[in-house]
């Protein structure tokens, strides 16, 4: 079976559309709500869901996702019960799901074991922010064997010499970091600079390139989508979830916010 992320990008390409990728921290406020959010996102124009695996020391994340991770960890969320949640989502939805996790939990779980179980649960991709491709051989091998995409990063500081290796190691899509900083810090670099960098990457690959980190408003979504194949929004959605956590209609409220973002895509 072809990978759901690949299928999605093919579908979008045929329709000449861009991808909207939504991030939520798994287990914030609890796993059951995460499942409901993912299912609701499908109807709110989300093309791919990025599920964040909470980690004790998330050094690539800003305060918003740090706090969400802490809340999820207090609920004893771990790789095992996240995979179980994905399995339950899979009974009702075919939305492509990528797990965003720091390397240590996966390394500790056992890369082979993890990849096999992730596949069985219905995970389509892996994004590991503290794992450059140079250190990723064993995880890439395990993921390939199980048809799971491995998404690696390009940053504004990436040495052009390394671009070929990064795009080669990436499957599904390539994650372009739109700022110097951590997630949600809102210090995006100039569109012109991003455009230039993506142009460099384009010389090396046909694979989709999506932009994330610090994208939070419909205007930014539109701007970034114009120069890439898709946009990732994380901290802004996590903030909405936290803001509405007391409300019964939280899932509907957050979905409305997400729909506003996804509908701003060109």
């Amino acid at each position: 079976m072809e990978n759901r992320i690949d299928l999605k990008f093919k579908e979008l390409k045929n329709k000449k559309k861009k991808a909207f990728i939504a991030f939520v921290t798994a287990g914030d406020p609890d796993l059951k709500t995460t499942e409901q959010l993912v299912l609701a996102f499908e109807g709110a124009g989300v093309d791919i869901v990025e599920l964040g695996v909470p980690f004790s020391d998330p050094l690539a994340d800003g305060p918003t996702i740090q706090a969400a991770s802490q809340r999820a960890l207090k609920k004893h969320v771990n790789l095992g019960n996240i995979l179980a949640a994905v399995k339950r989502i899979r009974q009702r939805s075919g939305i492509p799901i990528a797990l965003m996790t720091y390397y240590n939990p996966v390394f500790h779980y056992g890369e082979e074991r993890f990849a096999a179980q992730a596949k069985a649960a219905g995970v389509d991709g892996l994004i590991v922010p503290d794992l450059p491709p140079e250190e990723g051989h064993t995880l890439i091998r395990a993921a390939r064997k199980n048809g799971i995409a491995t998404v690696f990063f390009l940053a504004p500081t990436t040495d052009p010499k390394r671009i070929p290796a990064i795009v080669k190691a990436s499957t599904g899509f390539i994650y372009f970091v739109s700022l110097r900083g951590v997630t949600g810090s809102g210090k995006m670099i100039f569109t012109k600079e991003i455009k230039h960098q993506i142009g460099l990457a384009r010389k090396n690959t046909q694979k989709p390139i999506c932009i994330g980190f610090g994208v939070s408003t419909p205007k930014e979504v539109k701007e970034m989508a114009n120069i890439s194949d898709g946009v990732i929004v994380g901290s802004a959605i996590v903030t909405e979830i936290f803001k509405h956590k007391q409300r019964k209609k939280m899932v509907a409220d957050v979905s409305r916010f997400v729909r506003e973002l996804s509908h701003s895509l060109p």
């Binding site: 690539a60 503290d130 500081t157 990436t158 040495d159």
Partner: peptide, 19 residues
């Protein structure tokens, strides 16, 4: 690659690799 046997390496966000 910065390894002492199996220990060491560079496990950092992409932004820091060039630096």
């Amino acid at each position: 690659k910065g390894y002492f046997g199996e220990f060491g390496g560079k496990y950092v966000p992409e932004t820091l690799m060039a630096l």
